[in-house]
Every structure is written in C-alpha cells, then in structure tokens.
Design a binder for these strands. Structure first.
Length: 589
RNA sequence: GCGCCCAUAGCUCAGCUGGAUAGAGCGCCAGCCUUCUAAGCUGGAUGCCGCAGGUUCGAAUCCUGCUGGGCGCGCCA
C-alpha cells in the first residue's frame, strides 16, 4: 500500500533523528493527509509540527523550530526504492509536502487486479467475533420507515465490519413477550369474532392494534382451526404464538427479504422466559455484587397521575457503578421481571455465546436506554457499542406527516420497497449521517428520476461496463494488467483516478471503525463524479479505446479497476451494480 | 429540572479522530451530444461554519457557557 510505504520512509527518518539526538526516544506515528490542493503534493505530513510539540512536552526543553525539524527529517530520508519524485518540500509552519514518482501509482494499481471483489478488505479486525443486533422490530405489525433506516444502517455496518476483518453475526431480537403481544392477541380475537357470524362478538379495545393486517392474521387463525367462541384467557397463549409467528413470517421476514437483508438468527425473548434465563442472569449479577434491594426515587419529568409512586424496595442492578444516572429495577413489585431484566439476560447470552464485541443499532427513542445497557454489559465483562440513529420524519408534499402505529395510518416499509425499490431505498437512508434526523419525503423516494441519487451511482458503473463491452465487441479486447503499458496513463485526471481507487481500502477501514456507513455513499458519489469528468473531458480527444494499443490497454485497465471498485463499494451498501441502464424516456415539452 | 443528539450556501447535507484558500447535490443562469450511454459534463453566484469565550503554530473539528430544535428521563415494551 502506497501510503504505508511512504509512512515507513518517514518513520525511519524520524528514527535517525532520534539517533542523532534531535528527538527523544519514543514512538512517532506518522500521519499522512491527502491534500486538497495539487500544489501540496500527493501526501502532506504534519510530523514536524506534531513532534516538535511532543518533544517540548516530554522533555520540558523549549520547542524546536518545526521548520528546522522538518528539514532535519527531510535530510534523513533514504529513498532506496525510488518512491519520491523529489525531496519533500517544507511548507507553511512545517508541513512536508511529498510528491511521488508517477510509476509508483501505476504499479500500485495492480492490487485491484489481484484482489478483485476482495479489493478493499483488510484484516484490522483479526477475526474478532462480533455481533450486530439490529431491526428487532416488535412482531406486532408491519415495519415502518423508521425500521427501514435501522435495517440499512445495521446491515451495512455489518458488511463494513466483515470487510474490515471481523467475524460478524447478524441477529434479530424478537420481542414476543410482554404486554404488547397480549394486546395483539386480543385484537386478533376481536377481528376473528367479526369474521365468524354467530359467534359472540369480542369488542376491539382502544388499546388494541387497529390495523387492517390484524384481520389477515385473524383470517389465517380461523383457517388454521382457531375457535373464537372460547374465552380469551384460555386461548390467549396460543393466539399470541400464532399471531407473532404469522406476522414474523408474512410481514417482517418478507420485508427483509424484499430489502435484501439476511440475518444469521432470530432470537426469541419468550425463549429466555421459558428457559428461566432471566434468573440465571440475575444470579450472575448477584455473584458480582451488582444487585441490591433499593427504594428508587420517583421519576422526574414524567407525570405520575393515576399510577401513584409507592416507595417500596425493589431488586435493582447497580448500573450507577458504571455511569448510569440511577440504578435500574430487575423485578417489579409483583415479583415479575422487568423488560430490562430480559434484555440483561439476552445480552448475557450474547456474551456466553462467545461474542467479544457487541453492537446494537437502536432508534433515538431508545437513547435513554444506552447507559444502563452499557453498564450491565460492562459489569458482565463485555463491551457494548450502540449505534443510535435519529428518527425519521415523514414528509408528504412538503408537509409533515405524523404517523401512529395504532391508528394504522403510517407508511409501511413494504410500500416504500415496492414503489421505490430496495436499491433507491437503501441509498436514500444512507444519504445522511445516522445521527442526523431524516426527513423522508414519501413522494420524492418514489420518483424514478435523477432527483434520486441511486441512478447517478449506478450509471457510473454501467458506463464503465459499456466501455468494456464495446472493447470486447468491436476489438475483441479484454481488460488486462500489463505493467509495461501503465506508463501510458499520463493525464492528470488519470493519476487522480488511480489515487481515488487506491483510497478505497482506507475508506472501508475508516467507515468500519467509525461505524459510519454513509461514508461509503459519499465515496461512491465522489469517485463517480471524478470518472464522469474524466470521461467527458476526453471523449473527443483521448478516448479509452483508440488506435494506440498501449494507451488502450492501460485505459481499459483503469476503467476496469474503477468499475471493480464501484462494484465493491455498491456491494458494501447492498445495492446492485447494473451492467447497463436504459435511459429514461425523454420528456416531451 | 436532568441526560443524549443536532445547528455549515436559498433548500437538503458532506467535511476524513486539529491542517494550508470550507465542499457536494438540488434549485437558478450560461454552455457541451456525427464518434466508448447527456440518468453525464463544464463554467457562474451565495457562507460572522448558531452565539460568546478557551486550548495552540493552526479550530467547522477539541473544552466551557449560552441560544434554538429533536429524542429520552415509569415497576410500559
């Protein structure tokens, strides 16, 4: 890797500075930036400034002049392999502006040829077993657009981590226990009595789920032999099981399939209860001295009207020891476990299964939950990272469009996937950083024109494909790596494109470590813009396919390398890389 | 009252773990198709980077306070 080679050059120069007594012994991690301005070379190093400061801090001696230190470093660079075009220039307060010999870039492009679809991967993660838990939508109804955002972020983060060398496991936690699912069961029974004449009607409770899909569940339940004349308490358990399972299979898993998201497992909360895993987890916290009986203070900032606060000792986990605001109850006054207790057991289970790194993807409405969950995982000897994404505000024709799940007027993920398609939906969600609130314009996402950036991104790939196709069909030439031909790439735009391609592995590693999938989208857009610019500028003068065999070979390879890189980036996003795209029908004026 | 997130061009947003003259898309204006896809490209205008301090060679980026917006703060799930 070019950047690493240059860094090594500087590191050894710095070591010689140490030997010559110019710097105290120590580590000198070199930071190399890619300057925005061509005049600043291929790389810029701030080593002289940074280490002059470090020197003064460590020794108490007056700070060396950074420009003088820069000169000393330059004097000690031994460029045996001929990487550099010239001695680095010293600029401004002490930057080293480094310009490389052109053939360094040419040669480096071989990496794409060797690695193909693996280009961009690294082993930074050393195969660390990592679990990404995401979506985890309640099996009480269809998924809405907010789930969609979490789904894409989780999926692409998992893709990134895989490419960065982690061993990734994707899990969906099914909240199939607790009060919500009883409301669902009741709603199904109510709808079932509507459908079956002669059976005493069970009225739909206002708290029940109101959506049309509940009727579908009821119909399926009746078809499967459900008997709506029996009293609710007798059948609610089997209703619960039937309904959550039906919704999971017919709504949620189908949405995920349309979205192209695959999980390694679906983990049932109910199973934790059935297997008494909650008490096991609580015992484990007991052994660590993390639990206590405490009277918790009344909640602040919330109206406590009818359910008046009764000060009473409760079994709590002492999350305050790990930075939480207050300790959290594990058992209710009734002795029943809290929802949180189940989550504790679940995360305990993740650790028991050998995952060393836990990542949860949550909506911002669960933000208050982060510190307690992190505290518990830390107490259990693990580490949890939470990716919080801000909520999605639906907008329709420029007007806010509030949605309510019970009122059933929300826009489902299914509608979105069917109208906009999975590719556009994925890109749309990744067009913003996760911690920005997202205004989702339902109309805009359904447009199939260039207001939707996915077409721009895919068109770049298709255009590369078209050039390669033409070379094959008209000249019978396939792209191939020929180191002797690469010197034909002399245009500044060609060198810039090479650099751009070679930045991809770095980009992947960085996006993975920051857990920021949107960076891949921006890389794609910038890379494609650069390619379109190159293509258009020279389409009449310096074409890829020309009579000059050497140039043709080199340029064909460059186009191939760009295409491969775009394809790899699109694969990270889970977006298709089309070989051709039909132009949209021309608008008539 | 407390905690987390956000504030950058008219609009929507990037800004790489502190770097040199802050960028892109949309929108507006003016151009570019006989020749590898014009779903493309080129050029033009617009910024007290919310406000006020601090840290240092250097701040949109880090720290503190403030203002404005989002989310959260139950023995619910």
């Amino acid at each position: 890797m070019v950047k690493e080679q240059v860094a090594a050059l500087l590191r050894s120069a710095l070591q010689r500075c140490v030997q010559d007594g110019l710097l105290p012994p120590g580590e000198y991690p070199v930071q190399l930036d890619s300057p925005k301005q061509a005049a600043h070379g291929d790389f810029a190093a701030n080593a002289a400034m940074a280490f002059a400061k470090q020197h003064a801090a460590a020794t108490g001696a007056p700070k060396p002049n950074p420009r003088a230190l820069a000169q000393a470093i330059v004097d000690r660079i031994e460029d045996r392999e001929g990487l550099l075009a010239a001695r680095p220039e010293i600029a401004g307060p002490g930057f080293l502006n480094i310009r490389l010999a052109q053939d360094v870039w040419h040669k480096a492009l071989r990496a794409v040829w060797e690695q193909r679809e693996r280009f961009g991967r690294s082993d930074a993660g050393h195969g660390l077993r990592t679990m990404v838990e995401f979506v985890s939508a309640n099996p009480t109804g269809p998924m809405h657009v907010g789930h969609g955002r979490g789904a894409v972020i989780g999926d692409v983060v998992a893709n990134l981590l895989e490419r960065a060398g982690y061993q990734v496991f994707r899990e969906f936690y099914i909240n199939d226990a607790g009060g919500q699912v009883w409301r669902l069961a009741h709603a199904v029974l109510a709808r079932a009595t509507e459908l079956r004449p002669g059976v005493p009607r069970v009225p739909l409770d206002p708290e029940d789920y109101q959506g049309e899909y509940v009727k579908d569940v009821a119909r399926a339940w009746l078809d499967a032999g459900g008997d709506p004349s029996r009293p609710f308490p007798e059948i609610r358990e089997s209703l619960r099981g039937f309904a959550t399972n039906w919704i999971l299979k017919n709504l949620i898993e189908e949405d995920l399939r349309l979205f192209g998201i695959r999980f390694d497992s679906f983990f049932s909360e109910k199973l934790l209860h059935d297997q008494d895993r909650l008490s096991a987890a609580i015992r484990m916290l007991d052994e660590k001295g993390m639990t206590a009986m405490e009277v918790l203070p009344p909640p602040k900032g919330v109206d406590i009207d009818e359910e008046e606060y009764v000060p009473q000792p409760l079994k709590v986990v002492k999350t305050t020891r790990f930075g939480d605001d207050r300790d959290r109850p594990l058992l209710k006054t009734s002795g029943e476990p809290t929802y949180f207790a189940a989550d504790v057991a679940y995360h305990f289970d993740k650790l028991s299964r050998g995952y060393r790194r836990l990542i949860d993807v949550w909506g911002a409405d669960h933000g208050g939950y982060v510190s307690r969950m992190k505290a518990v995982v830390a107490a259990m000897g693990g580490e949890l990272e939470v990716i919080l994404f801000q909520l999605v505000n639906l907008v329709k024709d420029g007007q806010p469009y509030r949605m309510s799940k019970r009122a059933a007027n929300f826009v489902t993920l299914r509608e979105l996937l069917e109208t906009a398609g999975p590719d556009a939906t994925r890109v749309f969600f990744l067009l913003r950083r996760g911690d920005m609130a997202l205004d989702f314009d339902v109309c805009l996402a359904q447009k199939r024109d260039n207001s939707n950036p996915v077409f721009y991104v895919q068109y770049g790939h298709a255009r590369c494909a078209a050039i390669l196709r033409r070379a094959r069909e008209e000249k019978g030439v396939e792209p191939r790596w020929d180191p002797d031909a690469m010197g034909a790439l002399q245009l500044p735009e060609e060198i810039d494109l090479i650099k751009r391609v070679l930045q991809f592995p770095e980009l992947v590693a960085h996006a993975a470590s920051a857990l920021e999938p949107h960076k891949v989208v921006f890389y794609l857009q910038e890379t494609i813009a650069q390619f379109h610019g190159y293509y258009t500028k020279y389409k009449k003068t310096e074409r890829v396919i020309s009579g000059d065999e050497r140039k043709t070979t080199a340029r064909l390879y460059l186009v191939w390398a760009v295409k491969q890189t775009l394809a790899n980036a699109l694969a990270v996003l889970g977006v298709s890389a089309p070989e051709r795209m039909d132009a949209p029908a021309a608008e008539e004026d």
